[in-house]
């Protein structure tokens, strides 16, 4: 099987995150592989391993689009077990919205050719739109299964489970397909020492827009279909009254609610 996993390099949420510059883009210092993409990578590794791994010709390709630093998301994926990495990078990509991102990623997937399955995270932890997987599927003319909490592949078909608020459903699709997975699907592995050493020998291909046949005018600020016109930082919440329970904190809690007219 040839599986492509989309991995995004995102600002680490453990630190304060900022929007910068005229285009209000996210500041990418202190960035990491988006935690939610680790679940997609783990799902891909499990599918490949169940089929005999790379020795049996299974490929797990970690694909990231982003500035120079985004190669780190690819490297981490290789350490976890991806067989190869692809980094799409070009100055013209800066400021891409979901539409432009999905356009570039679709071109990259076509460029790789013969892909059976594209796995993605349920949402990027910075953009949080969940638009890219469905837009990628639409651009590639493929079925999409989003928010999969289980995934099986058997022959040329996949079966997955999705959970909504009021129901759960089982869905089926022919391959190739685009699947986004939730954090319920598995427990991502940590890179071990062997994986870290092995990653050094794996190849990372860098692709520019011209390599994948994308016109720079279709991506980045110029090619995006949405623009952020203003951004304002919310004042951080501040702590209020903190009390220590002396046997009557439940009552004090109700007094507080009553004073706030919340009862």
């Amino acid at each position: 099987m040839k599986i492509v996993v989309l991995v995004k390099h995102v600002p680490d949420a453990q630190f304060d995150r900022h929007l910068n510059g005229e285009g209000h883009t996210t500041d990418r210092d202190e960035s990491i592989l988006s935690e939610l993409d680790e679940y997609a990578l783990e799902a891909a590794l499990q599918l490949a391993e169940a089929r005999g791994g790379s020795k049996a010709g299974n490929q797990v390709i970690a694909l990231s689009m982003g500035p120079a630093g985004a190669v780190n998301a690819v490297k981490k994926s290789l350490q976890m077990g991806a067989t190869e990495g692809v980094h799409v990078t070009d100055d013209a990509l800066a400021g891409s919205d979901a539409a432009a991102t999905s356009l570039a990623l679709a071109a990259a997937v076509r460029h790789l050719g013969g892909v059976d399955l594209v796995l993605t995270g349920m949402a990027s932890t910075d953009g949080e739109t969940s638009l890219v997987p469905a837009q990628l599927a639409e651009r590639l003319g493929l079925p999409q299964v989003t928010f999969a909490s289980t995934l099986q592949v058997d022959g040329g078909r996949l079966t997955a489970r999705r959970d909504a608020d009021t129901y759960s459903e089982t869905v089926e699709a022919p391959l190739p397909a685009v699947v986004s997975v939730t954090d319920q699907i598995n427990e991502p592995r940590y890179p071990n020492f062997k994986g870290i050493i092995a990653a050094k020998r794996k190849s990372i291909t860098t692709l520019s827009l011209s390599d994948i046949g994308v016109d720079p005018a279709q991506v980045g600020f110029a090619g995006s279909w949405t623009a952020i016109t203003s951004a304002e930082q919310r004042p951080p919440r501040t702590a209020g009254t903190i009390i220590t329970d002396e046997g009557d904190a439940g009552i004090k809690l109700v007094d507080f609610l009553a004073a706030q007219k919340l009862l």
């Binding site: 919440r237 702590a239 209020g240 009254t241 903190i242 009390i243 220590t244 329970d245 046997g247 009557d248 904190a249 439940g250 009552i251 004090k252 809690l253 109700v254 507080f256 609610l257 009862l263």
Partner: peptide, 24 residues
């Protein structure tokens, strides 16, 4: 969580919650 709480109680949930419920 106390950094963002308007009203914080340092205490045991098994004491505070039932007492609040009874009081309400």
């Amino acid at each position: 969580v106390f950094e963002i709480a308007d009203f914080g109680i340092i205490g045991d949930v098994f004491d505070v919650l039932p007492q609040a419920t009874a009081e309400i």
